[in-house]
Design a binder for these strands. Structure first.
Length: 310
DNA sequence: ATATCATGGTAAC
DNA sequence: TTACCCTGATATT
C-alpha cells in the first residue's frame, strides 16, 4: 500500500545494507523460483526507485523489477542502517544495528527489539508467503505480496522506466521533468483527478497524495487537464516535489501544512490527523466547514471539498 | 468466524 | 467497466 515515497525509502534501505554484497536469493514461497535461481549468488550493484517501481541491478546485468501493488511489503531483518530523517547516515544514530523487523509498505513498524536472540536465530525462518528473500550474511529482505516481480535484461528495465512519467526523486533536473508533467497533464481532456494517478503523466502519486494535492491547490478534481492553467500545473508539480521529499524523509504522508508542533507530533501516531480530505467523508472541511464528499473516479475513491475546490 | 476494504495495476470482457 | 492478484487490518455476524 505504498505511494512513491515508500518505494524510495525501500530503495534507500536496500542501498545502505545490501548493495555491494553478494546475495543469496531465494523464493521461500516458490512462485519466483526460476528468477531467484538466476539472481542467486550475484552481487547487488545498485537499487533505484522510479515512481512506485523498484529496480535492483545485479552484477551480470539482470534487473529485478518489483511493484508492491496494494498490499505488497518488504520486511527487513538483522543488521540494518537506520534511515535517519534528513538522510545522513553518519554518527552513532545512523550506525547499523540489529533490528527485528521493519515492515515497509504502509506505515513502518518495528517489532520489539530482541538483539541477543536475533543474531542467534539469524537468518530467521520466513513468515507466511515470502516471494523473494535477498540475504547477505547479516541482513535479510523479504518481499511479500507484490503485484509485479520479474527479472529483466537492461533493455527491458530501460523500457519499463521509459513507460513512466517523471519522478522528482529520480531525476537530476526537476525543472525539466516538471515541464514534461505539465505538458502531459495539460494536453489531455481527462479529469485532472485521473491524470494525477496516471503513472505515465507523473510517477509515484497514489490515492492519498492525489486527493491531498488537489485540495492544496484548491482544484476541482473534474477539471479537464486541458483546462488546467499552465501555472497551476506547474504548482502541482512543485507541490509534489515538496510532498515527496517530505515523505521520503519522514516515512509518513503528512499533507496538512497548517499544524503546530504539538499537532504535528500527534499526527505522527494518528493517521486521522494527517490529511485535509482523504478518508474524511462527511466530516467538516478544515477550511470551509462543508462536509467532505467521496465519489468513485475511475474505480478509486476520490475525496474532496466541493466548496474549496472549484 | 466471516466479510469487507485498502496508499495499485493489468488484462479480460 | 469488471475480475483478479493475494495480504492484513478492521468491521460485522
Amino acid at each position: 500500500m505504498p505511494e512513491g515515497h515508500t518505494v524510495h525509502r525501500i530503495a534507500r534501505q536496500l542501498g545502505l545494507d545490501l548493495v555491494g554484497r553478494r546475495l543469496a536469493v531465494s523464493s521461500p514461497q516458490g512462485r519466483f523460483a526460476a528468477g531467484a535461481a538466476r539472481l542467486d549468488g550475484q552481487v547487488l550493484v545498485s537499487v533505484e526507485a522510479v515512481g512506485k517501481q523498484l529496480f535492483c541491478t545485479f552484477e551480470r546485468g539482470d534487473v529485478l523489477r518489483v511493484h508492491l501493488g496494494l498490499y505488497g511489503a518488504w520486511d527487513f531483518h538483522g543488521l540494518l542502517t537506520p534511515l535517519v530523517p534528513g538522510g545522513a547516515a553518519a554518527g552513532s544514530l545512523g550506525a547499523p544495528r540489529v533490528r527485528s523487523v521493519v515492515r515497509m509498505g504502509e506505515d513502518e513498524r518495528e517489532s520489539p527489539a530482541d538483539e541477543g536472540g536475533l543474531l542467534a536465530a539469524f537468518p530467521p525462518d520466513p513468515v507466511g508467503q515470502v516471494r523473494v528473500r535477498l540475504a547477505s550474511d547479516v541482513t535479510v529482505a523479504d518481499l511479500r505480496g507484490p503485484t509485479a516481480c520479474e527479472v529483466l535484461d537492461p533493455e527491458g528495465a530501460a523500457a519499463a522506466v521509459a513507460r513512466l512519467g517523471p519522478d522528482p526523486a529520480s531525476t537530476d533536473d526537476p525543472a525539466a521533468a516538471g515541464e514534461v508533467m505539465v505538458q502531459r497533464l495539460t494536453s489531455r481532456n481527462v479529469a485532472v483527478g485521473q491524470l494525477l494517478m496516471d503513472q505515465t503523466v507523473v510517477a509515484g502519486i497514489g490515492n492519498i497524495y492525489r486527493a491531498e494535492m488537489l485540495f492544496r491547490a484548491r482544484l476541482d478534481p473534474h477539471t479537464p487537464g486541458g483546462r488546467v492553467p499552465v501555472d497551476v500545473a506547474r504548482a502541482l508539480w512543485d507541490d509534489w516535489c515538496v510532498l515527496l521529499a517530505d515523505g521520503i524523509r519522514t516515512g509518513i504522508m503528512l499533507t496538512r501544512d497548517d499544524l503546530g508542533a504539538a499537532e504535528r507530533e500527534a499526527a505522527l501516531t494518528d493517521p486521522s490527523l494527517r490529511h485535509w480530505v482523504y478518508h474524511r467523508t462527511g466530516l467538516p472541511c478544515l477550511v470551509s466547514g462543508t462536509p467532505v464528499v467521496v465519489e468513485e473516479m475511475a474505480g478509486r475513491k476520490l475525496y474532496w471539498c466541493p466548496t474549496c475546490q472549484v
